[in-house]
Design a protein around this nucleic acid. Structure first.
Lengths: 198, 198
DNA sequence: TTGAAAGACTACTGCCAAGTAGCACACTGG
DNA sequence: CCAGTGTGCTACTTGGCAGTAGTCTTTCAA
């Protein structure tokens, strides 16, 4: 029970930090700002995080892990390469858009992360690219995809989806799920496969 | 002649600023750092730029303008929509990769720009999206493209190319021109067109 | 040779924000 | 009613860096 309350406080700090870092940037936000928004004071934050930089890492890393998992699960799942790629892209897009602020903060504030945190995250990103490349090779081998350069295609796919953090507006014309589906369709077309109907 | 020297000095400051902002981030770089790298002192920089933030804007804006121009020229050029889109994507990718550091700095440090500079740049970005959307609609009307949602497709295309700033390595496996061509091919496939051979 | 103007430097100021030391208050069990 | 523990706050210190005031030097024109 004490544990849960501690975890809850930590979570609330992270939430508020995400909101403010997203709106004003990492260096444009002071810990006093975050504390004020929560109705507490700066030392309160220091009982939960060792430094401002650690706070930043704590809000980036899990989101990157989720992205990797989304693609990993889909790639290892059932179905033809095309079906798996479709699911990988849809689920990845969902992570990007559901955790839009976290993703945005990571890409913008990379340079403010500690070397250790950055190294860990870069390991995850390499795994991500390898998984995606392998899935593309599987599709090529199965005759489902036509791809001139698998590495470039993997990076282009990853970029097309990641980039959605820059333009998606939750209150916009399309619902989140529709955006994800449209993007996944474009992804399949890009590698020369036919997207599923419906 | 005096003018030219002034312009040259300004240019050198910008060069060094790009290098350092790219490597260490905007807030991670001091004007003293830039001055030291140039073998001058901080007040020297202030005779050419009013503030650190103005320096940032001076190195972002022209690059965004170049991106817009690349697409605008190609869109207004000769040929079928597919040919124009291919050229637009190739030329845009060239700008992104040739001015990789500037592009990276802009997307990372957007939050550090002044409101005015950001507003100007956002106007350019809107024009960019409108031009690209119009080109896609032309292609659809001509029966060359198959696109479910033109706006999403335009954003996906823009993102796929822009994203290259995150992964391209000038010393890497592929030459810059090859990367651009591959990306443009993927772009055409994405909208249901056949890339030109060779 | 001298005066003026331009250009760059030395040596500051002032502010802002990260991080901390030590206090105060509340709650719980005896 | 009172110790002891945990939890958060007040009130600092500290360092770093953007921006500036005023000086020195160099150049060029008369």
């Amino acid at each position: 029970m004490r544990e849960e309350i501690l975890a809850y406080k930590r979570e609330r700090i992270l939430q508020e930090a995400v909101t403010l870092f997203y709106k004003r940037g990492f260096t444009g936000t002071t810990l006093d700002d975050i504390a004020a928004e929560l109705g507490v004071t700066k030392p309160f934050i220091y009982t939960h995080f060792r430094s401002k930089v650690e706070l930043l890492a704590a809000l980036c890393q899990p989101t990157i892990e989720m992205s990797l998992e989304a693609v990993a699960n889909a790639a290892a799942g059932e179905g033809t390469p095309a079906q798996r790629l479709f699911r990988a892209m849809t689920d990845f897009a969902q992570v990007v858009l559901q955790r839009q602020a976290n993703i945005a903060i990571f890409f913008r504030e990379e340079k403010n992360l500690s070397d250790e945190a950055l190294a860990e995250i870069n390991t995850l990103r390499k795994k991500f690219d390898r998984l995606l490349s392998q899935l593309l090779r599987d599709g090529v081998a199965a005759g489902e995809f036509q791809i001139a350069d698998v590495s470039v295609a993997a990076l282009a796919l990853g970029g097309m989806i990641s980039w959605a953090y820059t333009w998606h507006r939750p209150e916009g014309r399309l619902a989140l799920e529709d955006v994800c589906k449209r993007l996944a369709e474009l992804a399949l077309r890009m590698v020369g496969a036919t997207p599923p109907p419906d």
